[in-house]
């Protein structure tokens, strides 16, 4: 397999984003503002030495800042295009050429993420120097490695989910609404708003078998050192299983969808 075409797809994504200078700058400003808002809100709610729902101020702030960092890593910004491209017929361009559309989108996504990481890194460094927030720093390298690994799983899982949502385009012209509902549900159940373990125990233990907690909550809990090894392994097993399941669903839906594809417009 020629990997270079996928590298080029990722690189062109950079070029494309950078082509809109003002858009790009504004987007970064928005990221920083969101982060600052979250930070000031929670640091005002939590007084030093305070404790909320079993989380100390330091841990809660780390959790909240952590979600926005991991969010920018895991959430794919690009694959929403899939549904649009099916409906406006642009998908034809990829079907006609010897390129794997799935890998193409994944490379574009990675290109996008690489960009996020580079700029987030610069911005965060500046913010840390200015604000010096009370943040919990994990020093255990094996936990850091596991956090990173679980982020990779989350990223893959999220991509599959998002791609799958895009494939709805084969069956329905309305891809935006299901996506919107899904994203809202996802933000809640992935722990994007608060740590999931403050939910009642029965709900949380059901939730554990869904893919959502493994997108944000799980990597952060590993980072915070609040999970024992058995729990970490269990989580990795569950999310890997989901990745396999989703992979098969994507493959199946793609094959079925193509039969319905009408290559409208173009």
């Amino acid at each position: 397999m020629n990997i270079k075409k996928y590298y080029l797809a990722a690189r062109n994504t950079w070029d494309e984003t950078l082509a809109y200078r003002l858009n790009f700058v504004m987007w970064r400003v928005r990221m920083v503002l969101t982060l600052l808002t979250m930070y000031f809100l929670w640091s005002a709610l939590l007084l030093p030495g305070g404790n909320i729902l079993g989380y100390t101020r330091e841990f809660m702030l780390t959790y909240i800042l952590g979600t926005s960092i991991i969010n920018s890593l895991v959430i794919s910004n690009r694959s929403y295009e899939v549904g649009e491209e099916i409906n406006n017929g642009n998908l034809s361009n990829f079907l006609l050429r010897p390129i794997n559309y799935f890998l193409y989108q994944f490379s574009r996504d990675l290109g996008d993420k690489a960009m996020n990481i580079v700029f987030s890194f610069v911005e965060l460094t500046i913010l840390f120097i200015i604000l010096a927030p009370p943040i919990f720093i994990q020093t255990d390298s094996s936990l850091l490695a596991l956090t990173f690994f679980s982020c990779l799983l989350a990223l893959t899982m999220y991509f599959f989910l998002n791609f799958l949502l895009g494939l709805i385009g084969f069956w329905s012209p309305d891809v935006w609404a299901p996506r919107f509902v899904f994203i809202t549900v996802l933000t809640f159940f992935s722990g994007g708003l608060f740590p999931l373990d403050i939910l009642p125990k029965p709900i949380f233990s059901i939730l554990e078998f869904f893919p959502f907690p493994y997108l944000l909550f799980f990597p952060l809990k590993i980072y915070l050192g609040q999970l024992v090894m058995a729990e970490i392994i269990k989580g990795i097993m569950i999310s890997s299983t989901w990745i396999f399941v989703l992979w098969f669903i994507v493959k199946f839906a793609w094959a079925r969808g193509l039969r319905l594809y009408t290559a409208y417009g173009r």
Partner: peptide, 28 residues
């Protein structure tokens, strides 16, 4: 094979055509 359509767009809208040509070089 190739399908050329008068109303199709395979060029990257925001980038110069040469970028698409180079991408196609790799794809093919």
């Amino acid at each position: 094979i190739a399908l050329v359509m008068g109303q199709r767009n395979q060029l990257w809208w925001d980038l110069p055509p040469i970028e698409t040509f180079i991408l196609n070089k790799e794809i093919y």
